[in-house]
Structures are given as structure tokens and as C-alpha cells.
Amino acid sequence: MDPVGALALRMGDNALILGHRVSEWCGHAPVLEEDIALANIALDLIGQAQLWLGLAGEVDGRSADELAFLRDTWDFRCLLLVEQPNGDFGRTVMRQFLFDAWHVEMLRGMCGSSEPRVSEIAQKAVREVEYHLERSSAQVIALGDGTEESHARMQAALEWLWPWAGEALAADPVDVALAEAGIAPAVEDLRPGWEATLRAVLGEATLTIPESDFAHRGGKDGKRHSEALGHLLTQMQWLQRAYPGAEW
């Protein structure tokens, strides 16, 4: 596959699937302000998904909507982390933080992409994602260094999510080809910034980073998604599956 298309599909699927997951909180968040904030973050991500999937579609001749609603599990290229269920509020916040910390490094690196269409989307998205990281960091600190209950939930969330977090930082052949072409930053160049953010924020949150470096693989190459993605797609895609081409 064309490397620009492959990158756009990965970025677009991450934004789409996490945007959908976060939108599941709409009407259910613990307080009104959180409900609005989560809906706004979901909206940013779904907007970014439109840009990335629009680019992926330019490359392979399908529309962003067709890519979002008419592919099945094995054709998605999102990280395993973003498809994981919301769990409690703490797990949702921790998932967002672990993703934002990687996302911001990736987008900053892509602002200097050799491919102008990638660079311009990255320049647009990075400002929104810096704001997401600012917010998810503040929440991880407030809840981690909060009550005994919130601390325990945040530590449990970190431990539960940890095996899903490493995939983003493990290069595969597509990542290597993109870095060699100067289209995206090398994965190993993202690690120092990602780790520095984690150490600073999780340290201030009084949370302990798990020692294991085990990471599940199979999301970004589509070889082995977790069970959760199929369930998510049944919700996200049912309307276009039941009424193909429906519009309003």
C-alpha cells in the first residue's frame, strides 16, 4: 500500500475509534462539565479522523465515510489501546493520557513531514492535541494524587492499560518505511518525549509505572485486534450497514 495512505489510515483510525469510545460517555459522565469536555474531545478527534481518512481515501479512491463505516475489524489500523472499553472514569482518563502523550509527539514530528498533505493535517491537529494532553495530565494528577479511592482506581487503570500502551512505541515495517521516506518521525525518536511526559505526570500523580515492558501487538497492522473493536463497530456502523448510503 502507498505509505501516505497507510499512515493516514493509522492516524485516522486512531482518531475515529478513540473519538467514538470517548463519545460513549456523552450523557453519562460524572458531572456536566466532564460530559461537555469529553464530548468536545470526541468531536476534535472525529474531526481529525475526517481529515486523515479523507487523505487515505484520496489515495485509495474511497470516501472517508466509506472507510469509517464499511470496513470490518481486520481492515482497521488503530492501536489496540484506543479500542479498549471505557471502564470506569479513571480508566478512560488514563487511556486518554497514555494516548495523548504519544499522539502529541507523533503530530509534532509529522509537522515537518516530507509530504505536504500530512504536514498540514498535523499542524492543524497538534494544537488541539496539546490541549487534550494538558487536560488529561491535569486529571491524572488530580485523581492519582487525590483520595485513597481515586488513587487506587488510577493505579489499577494504569496497570490494566499498560500492556496495551506499548504498541505505539514498537516500530513495525510500515513505521520504518515511513521514517525512511521522511513522511513520519522514527518511532524510536518519539520514545524519549513520551517517557518524559509519563515520568513527570505519573510521578506527580504519585502513581507507579509498571515494570513490565510486555506489549500486545496487532492493532496498527490489523493482524490481531482485540475483541473490543468488533463490538464497537457493531454500534458505530449499524446504521450504514442496515441502511446503506443513508443520509440526513
Binding site: 462539565e33 468536545n40 494538558e134
Partner: peptide
């Protein structure tokens, strides 16, 4: 500050 987000993406409360 009440919240970093508000009634539209461009606003905070």
C-alpha cells in the same frame, strides 16, 4: 476556571 471546555469547541467555562 470551571472547565477547559464549554458549549462549543472554541470556548472554555
Amino acid at each position: 476556571k470551571i472547565s477547559q471546555f464549554g458549549s462549543t469547541p472554541c470556548k472554555a467555562q
